[in-house]
């Protein structure tokens, strides 16, 4: 085969160029191919609206230190009286004969100093006890959004349910409609309030305050589109369930190690 000098040079440049293009682009192509396989995108590459946040709680890890409750109140300016709370920790005690006892001494706010009633409850022998952290489930089908007469509460495109305090009329229908008791009326602002998964933090790439301070990693947060996010990993590796799934609200807080009898 006879190749002219001109043609040789042209072919060389083309090959080299193609090689460089392939070399530069290949990681992206490879990554795209792999991600397509795992159906997801790294959280960092998603815009604020493209995110699809998720939350998971490993009940077996929670030690009831209540740092999450305190951090939430500080971070979000929640009134300090224990009955006002965006997140709280319930303590369950299951007796030998299956009776369920719940106490949330000051909704978990005062931390481990609180003295929990011990062992025997109304003649029932205690068999096991554990803590269940609770917060807004940011439901896929949120009853609170459905019932608000003035559209003051709404679902952001990334799935988080927010309240526009300037529009809220304080009819308390959303508080009545929430099956998870996640809402309350703030006595200072006089409008409905609830956990937003620290919307002001997560939209800046930070973790919700409760997740940040949890010393045992019982609270896990991340993007549901990112297969490598901690929340996806936990859901993949553990058996999880949501609260009151029969109501069809499709909560986005997944619990690992949940015990029958938790409300």
């Amino acid at each position: 085969m006879k190749v002219s000098r001109r043609k040789f040079l042209r072919m060389s440049v083309q090959t080299l160029g193609g090689g460089i293009v392939l070399y530069v682009a290949s990681p992206a192509i490879l990554r795209a191919a792999l991600q397509e396989e795992a159906t997801g995108t790294p959280a960092a590459e998603l815009t604020r609206e493209e995110h699809s946040w998720g939350f998971a709680i490993d009940v077996r890890r929670c030690i009831g230190c209540h740092k999450c409750v305190q951090a939430c109140k500080l971070e979000n300016g929640v009134p300090l009286e224990p009955e006002y709370r965006r997140t709280w920790v319930e303590r369950y005690e299951i007796s030998e004969d299956g009776a369920v006892f719940v106490d949330s001494v000051s909704w978990g706010q005062d931390g481990p100093e609180s003295i929990y009633p011990n062992a025997k409850r109304n003649g029932h022998e205690s068999a096991k006890s554990f803590f269940v952290p609770k917060l807004c489930n940011q439901c896929e089908n949120p009853p609170c959004v459905q019932v608000c007469p003035v559209s003051a509460t709404f679902k952001a495109r990334n799935g988080v349910i927010l309240v526009d305090g300037r529009r809220c009329i304080g009819c308390k229908y959303c508080i009545v409609a929430c099956p998870y008791g996640a809402r309350f009326l703030n006595p200072e602002t006089r409008v409905a309030e609830k956990c937003t998964w620290c919307y002001h933090r997560i939209t800046r790439g930070l973790l919700p305050a409760c997740v940040q301070v949890c010393p045992v990693g019982a609270r896990v947060f991340g993007d549901m589109k990112d297969p490598e996010s901690p929340v996806r990993r936990l859901i993949r590796e553990e058996m999880t369930q949501v609260l009151k799934s029969a109501l069809g609200t499709k909560p986005k807080v997944y619990y690992a190690g949940l015990q029958e009898g938790v409300r």
Binding site: V150, S151, I169, V191
Partner: peptide, 15 residues
């Protein structure tokens, strides 16, 4: 809690 707002927003942003 805020009855006067109701008069505005039932019209402006009805659900």
């Amino acid at each position: 809690e805020r009855p006067w707002r109701m008069l505005i927003y039932v019209g402006l942003s009805p659900n």
